[in-house]
């Protein structure tokens, strides 16, 4: 446990002592601010019954932030240590592979959550100055952040895996970007197949419909199926990452 906490602190520290951390947060704040601007314009025209979080989600900045910034957060995790050789000093201390994987994931994940925090003041400003017709339901807000957390953990875990299989940060970023984008695009398959898909196919596709599932979250609807699906995916990717680290010791 001591090693785990030490490692998480070092991971978080690495984001904040280098410029990368601040660039990522600045980029996220910029994109959130942009979506905030779009949201304000939308509210000016006519009254709406949609919750604020959903209007924000409709700007699609959510996906740009997630798809672009998650790979940048995760690319350095293993690849940088391998390239610099510090992976050797790290793995020759008495820490287990599992501790390393979990600590790297946790560090990146905490940073990811911090990156989303500027969303809160944005929404608060709209609600505070927008008057009563604009709804900011705490339930919807909570569900939105739950969705961000869960989908984020899937993408961060995927990024961990991508970073573990290479020693070049750019390759890690590209692999996780491509994988993340493909996963996101799966949400659009049902529109194309229409009624042509069988029941089973439709069910499987519904599982991977990240876009629609996130829409439920921003409306304040928490369905247990996607929650479990996201957790399972996260564990799956972390398990593979652990395997990649262990493969070093295979004979």
């Amino acid at each position: 446990m001591q090693a785990f906490i030490t490692l998480v602190r070092r991971e978080l520290g690495a984001y904040f002592v280098s410029v990368t951390g601040y660039i990522i947060i600045a980029a996220a704040a910029f994109l959130l601010g942009w979506s905030f601007d779009v949201l304000m314009r939308g509210l000016q025209s006519e009254a709406t019954s949609q919750p604020l979080t959903e209007i924000f989600y409709d700007t699609l900045m959510f996906w740009i932030i997630l798809l672009l910034l998650a790979p940048i957060i995760t690319m350095r995790l293993f690849a940088q240590e391998k390239a610099a050789g510090t992976f050797e000093t790290l793995m020759t201390t008495p820490v287990s592979d599992l501790q390393v994987v979990l600590a790297k994931f946790t560090g990146a994940f905490i940073f990811f959550i911090v990156m989303w925090l500027p969303l809160l003041p944005c929404l608060w400003i709209v609600q505070h100055f927008g008057g009563s017709p604009v709804g900011l339901d705490p339930g919807a807000l909570g569900a939105t952040f739950l969705g961000i957390t869960l989908i984020g953990s899937v993408f961060i875990a995927m990024g961990c895996l991508a970073s573990a299989i290479t020693r070049t940060q750019m390759v890690a970023a590209m692999v996780s970007l491509a994988a993340g984008f493909s996963l996101f695009m799966a949400s659009f398959i049902p529109e194309r197949t229409g009624t042509g898909a069988s029941d089973l196919q439709a069910q499987v596709l519904a599982c991977f419909a990240f876009r629609d599932q996130m829409r439920d979250f921003v409306r304040g609807v928490v369905d247990t199926r996607p929650v479990i699906f996201y957790l399972a995916l996260t564990f799956f990717f972390l398990f593979l990452t652990l395997r990649v680290l262990e493969s070093r010791r295979w004979k």
Binding site: A14, G85, T86, E88
Partner: peptide, 16 residues
């Protein structure tokens, strides 16, 4: 590993 102090080739450190 608890009993070994290892300094690899090129002495990699965290520069930051």
């Amino acid at each position: 590993r608890r009993r070994i102090g290892f300094m690899p080739e090129n002495n990699p450190l965290y520069p930051e």
